[in-house]
Computed example of a mutant assay.
Amino acid sequence: MGKLRVIGIGPGSIENMSLRALKAIEDSDVIVGYNKYIDMIKELVKDKEVYSTGMKAEEDRCKEALSLCKNKNVALISTGDAGIYGMAGLILELRNDEDVEIIPGITASSAAGSIIGAPLMHDNCNISLSDLMTPYEDIKKRVKLAAEGDFIVSLYNPKSKGRPHYLRECIDIIKEFREDTTPVAVVRHALREGQSYKLFTIKDFDTEIVDMMSIVIIGNSKSYYKDGKFITPRGYENKRKNS
């Protein structure tokens, strides 16, 4: 019997992949994944059997991976972390008695945060603005509650041609609970080729520069910029004062 490893390959660059993920891919007979993800690690899969599909075929990929692993070692890959908007959950839902291992990777908010400073140093959350799996009213409710709770908010899938206004509407919700000086960062292609970023305050944030290759990070009430870096203090200064 083979084994299925569900692997988060991180941002997509080999140097930002864990050694465990790298070894699992090397040890696999078959690589399963979205076309663009396969292309990101093409130097690792050139001598492997490959099963790839386009967008919106996640369930087909998972079913094929589970079928193939009955007698082969299979790597099902996705960018970021396998358990954060990846394939881990769906595989476990569909799994019967197949041998499955989940291998984590760097998620987009962590990758983006490392580029712009230390924005995620306190309580934070990830919210996807894609309504393919979640009704938009639920998304807006989560954004509101996260903002009201003073979480740092990382917005995944922030904008597409089919929903050009969601990001602006969600930023307007967050504005109700934030000062105008609150830092907002947009990072594109974090830790891979084509990487870029821009820093704003929530007052002057320009949603027009955002696309599906971006992640948007909005600070909490204590976040600030220092020497061009986005910082959210965790409270060490208060601890020192009180000691």
Rank of each mutant, 00 (worst) to 15 (best):
residue 1 M to S: 15
residue 7 I to E: 05
residue 10 G to N: 08
residue 12 G to D: 06
residue 18 S to W: 10
residue 19 L to R: 12
residue 19 L to H: 10
residue 19 L to I: 13
residue 20 R to W: 03
residue 23 K to M: 13
residue 24 A to Y: 10
residue 25 I to N: 03
residue 25 I to G: 03
residue 26 E to I: 06
residue 26 E to F: 03
residue 30 V to K: 05
residue 32 V to A: 06
residue 36 K to L: 15
residue 43 E to P: 06
residue 44 L to G: 05
residue 48 K to E: 10
residue 50 V to Y: 14
residue 51 Y to F: 15
residue 52 S to R: 10
residue 52 S to Y: 06
residue 53 T to Y: 14
residue 54 G to H: 11
residue 55 M to Q: 13
residue 57 A to I: 00
residue 57 A to G: 04
residue 60 D to F: 14
residue 61 R to N: 11
residue 66 L to V: 11
residue 67 S to A: 13
residue 78 S to K: 09
residue 84 I to F: 04
residue 85 Y to I: 01
residue 87 M to C: 15
residue 88 A to P: 05
residue 90 L to C: 10
residue 91 I to E: 02
residue 91 I to S: 04
residue 94 L to T: 12
residue 94 L to C: 13
residue 97 D to E: 15
residue 99 D to V: 07
residue 101 E to I: 14
residue 102 I to Q: 00
residue 103 I to T: 06
residue 103 I to F: 06
residue 104 P to S: 10
residue 105 G to Y: 08
residue 106 I to P: 12
residue 109 S to I: 06
residue 109 S to Y: 05
residue 109 S to R: 00
residue 111 A to N: 07
residue 112 A to H: 01
residue 113 G to Q: 02
residue 117 G to F: 05
residue 118 A to W: 02
residue 119 P to I: 02
residue 120 L to H: 04
residue 121 M to I: 01
residue 129 L to R: 05
residue 132 L to N: 13
residue 134 T to R: 14
residue 135 P to L: 10
residue 135 P to Q: 11
residue 136 Y to T: 12
residue 138 D to R: 12
residue 140 K to D: 06
residue 142 R to N: 07
residue 142 R to P: 03
residue 145 L to G: 01
residue 146 A to F: 02
residue 153 V to E: 05
residue 154 S to W: 02
residue 156 Y to F: 15
residue 157 N to R: 08
residue 159 K to P: 07
residue 166 Y to N: 11
residue 168 R to S: 09
residue 169 E to S: 08
residue 171 I to C: 01
residue 172 D to E: 15
residue 173 I to R: 06
residue 181 T to Q: 08
residue 181 T to K: 13
residue 182 T to E: 12
residue 188 R to A: 00
residue 196 S to H: 00
residue 197 Y to P: 02
residue 200 F to R: 04
residue 201 T to N: 14
residue 201 T to P: 00
residue 206 D to T: 08
residue 207 T to C: 15
residue 210 V to G: 02
residue 213 M to N: 14
residue 214 S to T: 04
residue 215 I to L: 07
residue 219 G to M: 03
residue 219 G to N: 02
residue 220 N to R: 01
residue 221 S to I: 13
residue 222 K to A: 11
residue 223 S to I: 04
residue 227 D to C: 07
residue 228 G to S: 13
residue 228 G to P: 12
residue 231 I to M: 01
residue 232 T to K: 03
residue 233 P to S: 15
residue 240 R to T: 08
residue 240 R to V: 15
